[in-house]
Write a protein that binds this DNA or RNA. Structure first.
Lengths: 233, 233
DNA sequence: CCGGATAAGTGATTAGATCACTTGATATGT
DNA sequence: ACATATCAAGTGATCTAATCACTTATCCGG
């Protein structure tokens, strides 16, 4: 049912192109083989190859110049993930992700306390109530409810860009990572801390809301760090 | 020489697809017409349409599910299309984007001051020196050099996730937005402020580095805010 | 030495057919 | 009546091979 979509030919092609660029030691501005040569080398037809090229172009990895050639783009150096779904997260990245959230989410909680509308506050309460309902339910559902709380809090800050950033960070806890992550959930503590954050936001106390969000995320990180070193049976 | 490349059919298609999604009032998760129908409606052949679809997929605007259909992606809301209101949309988005950077980049500068390696510091110096070389050169080149400085500083913080976030924030500006942005560049001031940030990082003073980065971005935002209200002739 | 024609190389697009996958309806068995 | 298995329609993925459009460097005439 929840099978991960099998990689398509074009997916694989995109990766092989990136490999070709990196393994070849190509730098931005370098010219790559022609479409005809590439389609031959990878044993695919022109239209298929072009789909992969367009994806790479959209991410800035390459540049297509009509009549001239294919060139390595400036963004090539920071591209590790051609496709959001083909990313694998390891322990270190998990901690990096938590650190990222520790940087971003506290200021958002503070902004939410300052600018959040009554409707958004009500929504946040609903989300937390839903999480409360799942306190004795399935792990997966509780975990999702908790993530939704963080999303709702981020939305409340009223900055579309930051909201999307948080959204994508939380989405990275995809199906696979979710199973790993929810092992670490401390059901009661998470709920209590979320509640205290909500109260600070409702009180309009920006500094307190920010600090509580920060403390909450640091707590989560601490637990994960410990269990990464001492894996539970 | 520096003519902007004439838009290709596939370019136009990508825009028309965005129009179709927005004008249709589609929300993330909505299903779009099939490839056959789209290729007919736009009067292009399947492979051409697919190139446009792959680009949209790469930016998160849509999602292609084999055997199922084409669906609107979560990122659709931050993707802008050229229309009469574009200027204002860009304005609002621009300020949100700046606010996002004000939240994220200062802590990164502080982290860079604490953990940055000598190699990364050297790289940062090279980037700034390159910007200095362009102080009297082309606007576009100077602008790119300045963006590179921010990228390099973000990388120096040593958090792969946050580095990617900053990278994507700086990349989101498509060609159009870049032209708008670089109008606001204050060549000398930007360079000086970058230099002061670099010095704070080199001194290992995390608090100072963070504060200077914050002040720098607030300066930039202030200029943009003023000119948005008082467009220069 | 310069400037415009030119030819080779390259990306862009076309056309219709076939394969592979998903999904919901139908049929089957218990 | 319900669960499971099967199937068919709809959809995305890929193939095929040729032609069009653009860039670039070369070469020729002035």
């Amino acid at each position: 049912m929840s099978e991960v979509a099998r990689p398509t030919l074009s997916d694989a092609l995109t990766e092989r192109m990136l490999e070709l660029i990196h393994a070849g030691g190509h730098r931005p501005g370098d010219r790559l083989p022609s479409t005809r040569e590439l389609s031959q080398r990878f044993a695919v037809t022109t239209p298929t190859l072009r789909e992969a090229l367009r994806r790479l172009e959209a991410t800035g990895a390459i540049e297509l110049r009509h009549g001239s050639g294919i060139y390595v783009g400036a963004a090539i150096e920071r591209l590790v993930l051609p496709n959001p779904n083909m990313r694998e997260m390891h322990g270190a990245q998990l901690l990096d992700l938590l650190d990222a959230r520790i940087v971003i989410e506290p200021p958002l909680a503070a902004m939410a306390a300052e600018r959040g509308s009554p409707e958004e506050l009500a929504a946040l309460k609903r989300v937390l109530a839903a999480a409360g309902d799942h306190l004795r339910g399935q792990d997966a559902e509780l975990h999702d409810a908790n993530m939704t709380f963080h999303r709702a809090a981020a939305r409340m800050a009223g900055n579309s860009v930051l909201h999307e950033v948080v959204d994508s960070l939380l989405t990275i806890h995809g199906p696979e990572q979710r199973q790993i992550l929810q092992i670490f959930d401390d059901r009661r503590r998470d709920y209590d801390e979320h509640l205290s954050i909500l109260e600070a936001i409702e009180a309009g106390d920006a500094a307190l809301a920010g600090e509580r969000m920060r403390a909450h995320l640091v707590d989560v990180k601490t637990v994960i760090e410990q269990r990464l070193h001492n894996p539970p049976k």
